[in-house]
């Protein structure tokens, strides 16, 4: 099984109200010195077969087509080598 992680984050210049809400809550819980929080999304994707450049490219296309909105979000795709869902559990 080829496993990939797609991280999607709001672009730096886009206001991130959810991150701001978390940032506001942390000091109230006693966590000091938190300078900034930004909130994004993480997708774990498993594809049949072995990880290769073609599958990586497929995941990139998934990310730019559906998982992220390039107008407001950036994404990174990471290949997770030698690990399946069963291994992780």
């Amino acid at each position: 099984m080829a496993r990939y992680v797609v991280d999607v984050m709001p672009k730096r210049e886009i206001l991130d109200p959810q991150g701001k809400a978390v940032l506001g809550a942390l000091p109230r819980l006693g966590f000091e010195g938190v300078h900034d929080v930004r909130q994004g999304k993480r997708f774990e994707i498993e594809l049949e077969g072995e990880a290769d450049e073609a599958r990586l490219e497929d995941v990139r296309r998934m990310a730019e087509t559906l998982l992220a909105n390039p107008v407001i979000e950036d994404f990174t795709v990471t290949s997770v080598p030698g690990e399946t869902t069963e291994d992780a559990q």
Binding site: L15, A21, N69, V71
Partner: peptide, 17 residues
């Protein structure tokens, strides 16, 4: 319509949350 790229830009969470 924005997600479909029929219109430019995007709609995001209200700034006041």
């Amino acid at each position: 319509l924005c997600e479909s790229h029929l219109l430019p830009g995007a709609l995001t969470r209200n700034d006041h949350r």
